[in-house]
Design a protein around this nucleic acid. Sequence first.
DNA 1: TAGGCCATGTGGTCCAACCACATCAACTAC
DNA 2: GTAGTTGATGTGGTTGGACCACATGGCCTA
Lengths: 251, 251
Amino acid sequence: MWSNHINYDSDMRTHQLVLTWIEKQLSDGQLSVGGRLPSERTLAEQLAVSRTSVREAIRILEAMGVVRAGVGSGPEAGTVVISDPTAALGSALRLHVATQHLPVSDIVETRILLETWAAARAKPDAPELDLAAMLLGEMDAVERVARTADDFLALDIRFHLALADAAGNAVVSAMMGSLRESIQGYTARFTANLPDWDATASRLQAEHREILAAIRNDDGARAATLVAAHIEGYYREGGVGRPAGGRPAEE
Amino acid sequence: MWSNHINYDSDMRTHQLVLTWIEKQLSDGQLSVGGRLPSERTLAEQLAVSRTSVREAIRILEAMGVVRAGVGSGPEAGTVVISDPTAALGSALRLHVATQHLPVSDIVETRILLETWAAARAKPDAPELDLAAMLLGEMDAVERVARTADDFLALDIRFHLALADAAGNAVVSAMMGSLRESIQGYTARFTANLPDWDATASRLQAEHREILAAIRNDDGARAATLVAAHIEGYYREGGVGRPAGGRPAEE
DNA sequence: TAGGCCATGTGGTCCAACCACATCAACTAC
DNA sequence: GTAGTTGATGTGGTTGGACCACATGGCCTA
């Protein structure tokens, strides 16, 4: 009775049949990110295959990063779709960006590219935003007790990473993380060039709040604009000319 | 009697134990391309796990394009290593990373983000474009002489990296380079599952030429649009549902 | 010698259990 | 009544055994 309209090759291996079925559910929208697959036993019965074959298919999807299997009962249980697999075949990702001798202007450019994208894409209810909000409070505290600018900027970086994480793209998060050292290395020069650190910190905090508020209001376009201006101003104030208007650093 | 010196995490899932064992064989050189794994039953006995777990591990390797399973007896039988993941994915086969949920959809997203940006800002006279053009010619040559899809796609990756380099941003170039391994890992499976490689290669080449032409004409917007469509189509065509080994489902 | 047959070994599939785990509801003790 | 315990329920994780389809190669027969 379970006639899904999949064209089964007569000699298709059984676990591929399961994969095809799941793929169809996903492409049809009957299954999407966050959704749960039927239990292995149920799926086996529905597709008239053994649970073994279902498990082999799920194992592949798990290795590809499409689903995550969790035992027990409750929210963590079952097989959950964690990635839209329209183009998903998983693979190992090893990021080792050599951030040693990179021009600051290129870093600024890349930060703007990645962070504006992330800001435009972040969901208002992303849990990473809570972390960002907390970091905002810590920065306020640091500022009150007249701690060093380094402490403040360490939190500042974490704030920006949290915003990037809120976009939900693991690769972008990893790339931002790989820039962390470079960004940190810059802060020394940054603080040295500032005439009035307190005023700068206050302004940065105000901008941070605006950005976070824009994301929380689901105004991605505004958030992206604010982020770009924020990063630009941040580096300009530190005496590093921002790479002119989208155009690189010529020469 | 089988004391392999693998450090078994006590809570490691069984099929991952098998993956770890096979990874060790490959990295130690005791197993290489063309070599055959022990039979599933033998392997299960040696590692003191069930054949089911061995099969799940082999299924993953098969989906990753590392091995090919053949029934019967004779040269086509047994589980044969058809690709050296040690070379393809870096110094070690990070299968545990593969199961660590780094969805390829995120990689696709990031590629589109970075490459469209690079295409939009690449200068028509960038020297990297000459390299890109040369690679185009090489891909044509490869296509003419044989069905060496792997060779073609190796050049394809270099082409994309050259375009990214043409934007003149060292950070973006480094990030694209860090994605290289991931992209390469995907292409192995990609080629194995295409019904008509020649047609696909021709289409890819046509798109490559369009992209390059757009950049040469200083039409960054068009180049970006073409790149996005190109990458999207590229991954979609190798989409989920036809892991290595089986023939792709007819449409 | 030529042809056919079958023992052997492979992966492919299925089944029936059992385990570990996590939740939740019913129950019990206070 | 409340707090803690216990068991039912359902999940994925694992196992061993069984049978199948397939391909080879040697044995046996004509």
